[in-house]
């Protein structure tokens, strides 16, 4: 199974609050009027230019010991993630990106030299791909027609080496929406996310990478530490 689409911002439903949270504001806390006006202006500006996109493909696969094995590719997933994905019979691999147009827009903002504008542009990009992540999970729910799946896990999260991203890109082949990785495994366009979701009846979608992370005071934390 393969699905891929370009999403409009109205469909994505990115809100000002999403951006505020990405800027480090706690839920329910609003920035001052100067900052809220800036965010609203920049978000409207971005919406005219940027078209986020995603691609999601599923493969049969299994967990051997703690390693995820898909089509002969063995991922060196850490034991904890391997245990969480135990019981998966298929895996969905995905790439999400705010796209090249976002990078160009953010570069233009940076070149204008205002550090606050650059910070807001970065936060909007992060909020966009986070929202895309939720969108892709909803899409997967619809495609699986209620079948159970895990949360998403990304190379670079929770002791899973970011170098493992190369294996994910190998499996995706040319089907990467133009997203590439450099020798440091950094994705281009920069606001892109790749990851893996296990599909199987026994998997628990409530255990997220965030819930595994020991950084309890992280402002991005969205789950209790388990």
């Amino acid at each position: 199974m393969r699905v891929s689409d370009v999403i409009s911002f109205s469909e994505l439903g990115l809100t000002l609050s999403d951006v505020y949270e990405s800027m480090g504001y706690r839920k329910g806390v609003e920035p001052d009027s100067q900052t809220t006006a800036l965010v609203a202006r920049m978000l409207a500006d971005l919406e005219r230019e940027v078209k986020p996109a995603y691609v999601l493909k599923t493969w049969p696969g299994k967990v051997e010991d703690h390693s995820v094995v898909i089509d002969g590719v063995v991922f060196d997933t850490p034991k904890t993630i391997g245990k969480i994905l135990q019981g998966a019979h298929h895996f969905a691999l995905f790439i999400i990106t705010a796209g090249q147009a976002y990078d160009q827009w953010a570069d233009r903002v940076k070149q204008q030299g205002d550090i606050l504008d650059a910070f807001v542009a970065d936060a909007i990009g992060s909020a966009t791909v986070e929202k895309m992540g939720l969108y892709v999970k909803i899409k997967l729910d619809q495609l699986l027609k209620g079948a159970n799946h895990s949360s998403s896990f990304c190379p670079g999260q929770y002791h899973w080496p970011i170098s493992e991203q190369s294996k994910l890109f190998t499996l995706m082949g040319d089907d990467t929406l133009g997203v590439t990785i450099n020798e440091s495994y950094l994705m281009h366009p920069i606001k892109s996310v790749s990851g893996i979701i296990g599909i199987g009846e026994t998997l628990n979608p409530k255990i997220t990478a965030c819930s595994l992370c020991p950084r309890v005071d992280c402002f991005r934390r969205n789950a209790e530490h388990v």
Partner: peptide, 13 residues
Amino acid sequence: GEAFVPNLLMSAR
């Protein structure tokens, strides 16, 4: 936790 990064940046500016 009474001020946020944008406040720091605006003050620095």
